[in-house]
Computed example of a mutant assay.
Amino acid sequence: MPHRQTYPGRPQLPVGWRRFLARLPVLVFRCGLGWVFGGRLLLLHHTGRVSGLHRRVVLEVVEYEPAGRSWIVASGFGPRAAWYRNLRAEPKTLIEVGNRRHAVTAHVLPPDEGAEIMARYARNRPRTARRLCTFMGFPSDGTDAQFRDAGRAIPFVRLDSAPGAGLP
């Protein structure tokens, strides 16, 4: 597997009230109100690879493929994000989108595929893509080449739903 480029600057995890705000969507999902996010966010359940504890994180859906019932998400904090490392250790998991649960299997995507995904994302959401790149320390003057370079460094994961595996 090709080696990913390294992040130019490691984004800092939020602390204090910013952490509370960042974790607020998890509470929204836990209250059964995930539908307010439409299909833009999903709640990923994962198991700590060291602790074995059940964890949850809300992620932005970068792309959704309705035919194959798969969701693509990105690790904005890089390959050292806990959820990303946990999925690499145990790829079978559960997600919630809206008020529906889906059993999924995670597949880490190669860097060149990540480049294409980031380029498409930038065309669909240019302002958000520029902010994301700035947050992660990448140049963000909006060129397609820069978004592709960022996409090669950002870990992307495809979450594939098993046929008929929608859970109540």
Rank of each mutant, 00 (worst) to 15 (best):
A74Y: 04
T105F: 01
P66M: 03
L24H: 08
M136C: 11
A122D: 08
L159E: 03
F147Y: 13
G166E: 11
A81M: 04
G166I: 02
Y84F: 15
G114R: 04
A81L: 02
R100G: 05
I154S: 09
R23T: 10
F37L: 07
K92Y: 02
R88K: 10
R19Q: 12
G142V: 07
L44E: 00
H102C: 09
H45E: 12
W17S: 11
R19I: 04
Y7R: 07
G52V: 04
A129S: 10
V157H: 10
G16K: 06
M136K: 03
R80E: 11
V36M: 14
N86A: 05
C31F: 13
L167I: 06
G52S: 07
P2T: 15
L59T: 03
G76S: 05
G78K: 07
R19G: 06
R152G: 04
I72T: 15
P155F: 01
W83H: 04
I117V: 15
D144C: 06
R4C: 08
R4S: 02
R158D: 00
P8Q: 06
H107K: 13
F135V: 00
G98M: 00
P139R: 05
T93K: 03
H3D: 14
V73E: 00
F29P: 01
H46A: 09
F20E: 09
G48K: 13
A81F: 08
Y64R: 14
R10C: 04
R120L: 11
I117L: 14
Q12E: 15
T93M: 03
S140L: 01
R158I: 01
R158W: 06
R23E: 13
Y64A: 14
P79K: 10
S140C: 07
R120T: 14
R123M: 14
V57F: 04
V28A: 01
R130E: 11
Y64D: 11
W83V: 12
D149H: 08
R10K: 14
N86W: 01
A67D: 14
E116P: 02
C133S: 10
N124Q: 15
L13K: 15
G114F: 01
R120E: 12
R88Q: 13
H107L: 04
D160Q: 12
V58S: 01
A122V: 10
D144F: 08
K92M: 06
D112F: 00
G39Q: 13
V28E: 02
P8N: 05
A129M: 09
S75L: 00
V97M: 06
S161Y: 00
A89P: 05
R120V: 10
R40A: 15
Y7P: 11
A122G: 12
V97G: 03
D160A: 08
P163V: 00
E116I: 00
D112T: 06
A153M: 02
Y84W: 09
A89E: 08
G114W: 01
F156V: 09
D160M: 03
P11K: 09
G166H: 06
V104H: 02
H107E: 11
R69I: 04
A129D: 08
G166L: 07
R123P: 11
L33R: 12
W71D: 09
G151A: 02
R148A: 10
A122P: 11
V57T: 15
C133H: 10
G78E: 09
D144E: 15
P111K: 00
C31L: 12
H102W: 13
V108D: 12
V26S: 01
F29L: 04
L159D: 03
